[in-house]
Simulated assay, not measured.
Amino acid sequence: MGFADQRYTVNLSILFTELPLLERPAAAAAAGFSAVELWWPWVDSPVPEPSRLSALRRAIEDAGVQLTGLNFYAGQLPGPDRGALSVPGEESDRFRANVDVAADFAAALDCRALNALYGNRVDGADPAEQDALALRNLVLAARAADRIGAILLIEALNRPESPRYPLVSAPAAVGIVDKVNEATGLGNTRFLMDLYHLSRNGEDLPSVIERYAPKTGHVQIADTPGRGAPGTGTLPLEDLLGRLAKAGYGGWVGLEYKPGDGPSGESFSWLPAGPRTTDTAEQYEQ
């Protein structure tokens, strides 16, 4: 099993960014994809004007693609921030203000996965207090996700690019998953297994897959070292995706890579046309 046996969703916050936001869903559809995902699109606002939400919803619906994943507000991303929920003060307030906004937007598009980036360590803040704040906010997020029939995702990033982010290994992220599930009793918090980030951390990816596939709610890929399309680096992504399938993972694989110098639509030559379009029903009910 490998590339041709997966279900792919295009991250429109890193691919097709040469186009305005509202044109990207149609571009993904024109490239043959039926599913897309997004970071929180409005870094300037956790609670955007309803007209902005409506316009993006129409763009996704008109393109005929399924929104499979959405980040909660995470600060300046891309940029210096790596989330807001563990950051004391205004940033965590913004996260809480965004929770129901993001969940309601996801529900309107039948999106079943919400990703909550943990946030950086902050100078002068006690890490234990940041972790306590994070747990309180993640409980709110998990309950909002449960309200719309969705899962909450917790992601590990990589230390070289995110040196102040505390979740820089699969065990660290899964530890938070377990804490949130224990606190809520809902069981809807899952691990987001980003193979690019875990590779940059030097983790044994076959071992990570074997150990954590049962707790994984979503997978994202990019090649290393340049975070490009599969085949542009050294990561054996086809083999790793085959291992994930054999381990029982049958959900979406998010394409979260940089397209290179050309248009994003030219970055999919590694992928046969067939897997780009698939039945989107119940992908997260594993």
Rank of each mutant, 00 (worst) to 15 (best):
V87C: 10
T232H: 05
A26G: 08
V180S: 01
Y73R: 08
M1C: 12
A26C: 04
Y196D: 08
P230H: 02
H197Q: 12
Q76T: 12
R7E: 05
L240T: 00
N188L: 11
A173F: 06
A183F: 10
A128N: 06
A273I: 11
L114M: 14
G187E: 15
E182T: 14
S92I: 03
N158C: 14
L15Y: 03
A245S: 14
S54P: 02
N137V: 08
A102T: 15
L195Q: 12
Q283Y: 07
A97F: 00
P263N: 12
F72S: 10
G149V: 04
Q220L: 00
R58Y: 01
I176Q: 13
L19K: 09
D131M: 03
L109S: 02
P46L: 09
N137E: 05
S92E: 15
V10T: 11
S264K: 00
I151W: 00
L12F: 03
E182G: 11
E90F: 03
I148E: 01
L240C: 04
F191Y: 15
T280Q: 07
A31I: 03
L22R: 12
A113F: 06
A183Q: 07
A31W: 00
S269K: 09
N188P: 06
Q283W: 08
D5C: 10
D110E: 13
A213F: 05
P214V: 05
D126W: 06
R143M: 05
R159K: 12
G79W: 12
A142I: 09
V168T: 15
P236Y: 01
P230K: 04
L56I: 07
G217E: 05
L157F: 09
D239T: 14
A97M: 13
I209F: 08
Q130R: 02
T232F: 07
T280L: 10
R200T: 03
D126H: 08
R136W: 00
G69Q: 09
L240W: 02
G274Q: 15
F33V: 02
E203M: 06
R276N: 11
S54K: 13
T68I: 04
R227M: 06
G69A: 11
S34K: 01
G119A: 10
P236C: 03
D204R: 09
V168C: 14
P160F: 10
V177D: 08
Y257W: 13
R94T: 01
Q286A: 15
L192Y: 14
S199A: 15
R82I: 03
K258V: 05
L19R: 14
G187R: 12
E49G: 08
T278V: 13
G83P: 10
A134G: 10
G79D: 15
G226V: 01
L67R: 09
S34R: 03
F16N: 00
L85G: 07
L205R: 11
G69Y: 10
A108K: 04
F16L: 07
V87Q: 04
P206S: 11
P88G: 12
W252L: 05
N71R: 14
A213W: 09
R7P: 00
L241P: 07
V87P: 01
D194W: 11
A35W: 01
Y212M: 04
E91V: 00
A229W: 01
Y118T: 08
G69V: 06
L244A: 09
G119T: 08
D81K: 07
G262E: 14
G79H: 13
P160I: 06
L53P: 11
L70F: 15
D223E: 03
A229C: 02
